[in-house]
Design a protein around this nucleic acid. Structure first.
Lengths: 235, 235
DNA sequence: TTTCTAAATATGGTATGCCAAAAATAGATA
DNA sequence: TATCTATTTTTGGCATACCATATTTAGAAA
């Protein structure tokens, strides 16, 4: 069976690292040692090392050796494992809180950028791609107004998941045909208005309502035209 | 200069993929083609392909070829790049919103688990390791009560960052000596009480206040004992 | 013409060998 | 003895060559 032999070797080496009680910074056995240990060529061990290096388990130094770097964070849930509804709910919870936070830290420069993006959205309504890009940009700008890189990072992650989710792409392609775009634009305007007022609760409510509208739109689309989404939306 | 040549080649191939307008599922040029194109051996291209495979850009099929899989999510901010204060602020914004959400979806089973964990925290106050683990468990359980895997995932990510952050470890090691632990325990009890009442705003406020207390504690510790943290906390 | 089969080809998989940089060692020198 | 230097050894970097499997092609049979 064993397609991807280097991966198996890489996993075995991970186990070795753990079981041998290696500490961060410690030197690993050399490629040649592992090659002999596993009875394969050094090439394969080297490929396994590259895998571990990409996954940030080890650091490889020419002429010196390879060193245990860290036991990296667990892998996050995979993009395709999450349904659009679950994703939107997460966005609603997070982004509304972020909007409230942003209302207290937003600068004039931030507000200007948001205004520009809003106008861009309006101008690009006819283009699915560009309107979507501007939409994403607007939400990211709100997060950036918090001055907190981790919050920005989380919003970006959620949007990346959305844009990479095949189910979303299918649904999203139908949206611009409808009149929803206008509603979303008004929603964004409301968010911006509350941010201008530095009204935390107002911004929270505006963002919450916006995503509530998006959820409803998504639900109507999936309900009327694609009954095959049943059970998946709520996964 | 260029240690890790395979990484450079991998990055160049990524650019090629983007610029050539390749769609998901499309076949990539063969390893041999890239080898000739870049004027290197196939071995290096193969190593670059392994990198792209680990990063989920491509899928490699023996005898057939390599195929564009997806343009994966951008790498998140690295653990060590973020200061404890920024991390806590992110947790405060997110976890308070999550607590509010959880108040509306929490089950009796969830409440029982939270209660058990709370008792465990109380019993393990003397052990830094175990108290910390129970602390983490409590916050994760709150997130799990939302029934939303993405929210759980985000909380877990933030805690992973905390536990892997060297600066936090340094600060954290001093905390159990103090009386703060008692305060945190009471905070957790308040959160649980609000969840029992299914009071969203109450839960939000309780969690917010809890993390406000943590922030204050951290600030006092870093202020009084470690002036060298200046400028880093607010990065 | 269509379809099935076998040979040829294309493509990734693995192994071996030599190169270059770093580290360790031995010896000279103060 | 201590320290600097030259040399050897260790270790990863890269290339070439051959193997195994999937795909394609050519040709025979229906």
């Amino acid at each position: 069976m064993a397609a991807r032999l280097y991966k198996e070797i890489g996993e075995q080496i991970k186990q070795e690292i753990i079981q041998s009680g290696l500490s961060v910074g410690d030197k690993l056995p050399t490629e040649r040692v592992y090659a002999e240990l596993f009875g394969v060529s050094r090439t394969l061990v080297r490929e396994a090392f590259i895998m571990l290096e990409i996954e940030e388990w080890i650091e490889v130094k020419k002429g010196s050796g390879s060193y245990f770097k860290s036991r990296p964070l667990e892998h996050s849930k995979h993009v395709s494992d999450v349904g659009p509804f679950e994703l939107l709910q997460a966005r609603q919870v997070m982004e509304s809180a972020i909007a409230a936070c942003a209302a207290q830290t937003v600068t004039k420069a931030d507000l200007q950028k948001l205004q520009d993006t809003l106008e861009l959205e309006e101008a690009e309504l006819h283009s699915v791609e560009k309107a979507n890009a501007a939409d994403r940009e607007f939400h990211l700008l709100v997060a950036q107004a918090t001055q907190n890189a981790l919050l920005v990072d989380n919003v970006r992650r959620l949007w990346d998941m959305r844009d990479n989710n095949p189910m979303w792409q299918q649904l999203h392609s139908r949206i611009p045909e409808s009149s929803y775009s206008d509603q979303w634009l008004k929603d964004h305007e409301k968010v911006l208005t509350q941010l201008r007022k530095r009204d935390a609760e107002g911004a929270r409510e505006a963002m919450w309502q916006h995503l509530e509208n998006v959820k409803r739109t998504l639900f109507e689309l999936s309900d009327t035209e694609s009954p095959d989404f049943d059970g998946y939306l709520f996964s």
